[in-house]
Amino acid sequence: MTLQLDFPAVLERWPSFLAGAALTLELAFFATVLGALLGTLAAVGRGTHNALIAGACKVYVETIRNTPLLVQIFLVYFGLASLGLKYSAFTVAVAALTINVGAYTAEIMRAGFEAIPRGQIEAAEGLALSRLQIYWHIILLPAIEKVYPALTSQFVLLMLASSVCSQISAEELTAVANYIQSDTYRAFETYIIVAVLYVILSLVMRAGFWGLGLVLFPRRRRLGTPL
């Protein structure tokens, strides 16, 4: 049997593909923003002297990083349902992705915090900056700048991982593909198109983060070197 590909039959569904890609980006956006916040908090929590908070943050990070996203999504999905809470698939997907990427972000941010030289903090204390000022200007912002490349590739990976949300019927790109292939019987063509769309989305995200980096870190832009 020879391979016969019929792309036009699938491509005429382009509005569905675009809607799916838009929802994938939307999922990735919310999960990135919320996950970055959660992850930074968890990284701060892991560094505190309160053993209870530090322990809880460690358990969170290690549990999430050592179990598959698919299992986490099902646990959130059925966990909320068994508590009697009804949320849309989109909300559940954002929640599960946020919890997931938060753990990875925490680990990256912790590396960033650890890379801040002790002398910088002492110098800031010597200049009588307040605790809050030190945390913001001397620790948090430089740490983000240091780990920015690692963070952004984690967020691109998150966008790709959001394909797993198709399993709880969030109507993102992969779910759209599953529907179209069952409708047209053109599975191979459908998934090739979807793969290309994902590659484009990840290139767009990389370019976007690169541009954002130029805006956020003027020092890097002017000197061409990271901190």
Partner: peptide, 17 residues
């Protein structure tokens, strides 16, 4: 740049195709 899920579907349906 492609999710593993899509690669799996491609492998599954592609080899069949």
């Amino acid at each position: 740049g492609t999710p593993l899920l899509v690669i799996l579907f491609l492998g599954y349906f592609g080899l069949a195709a």
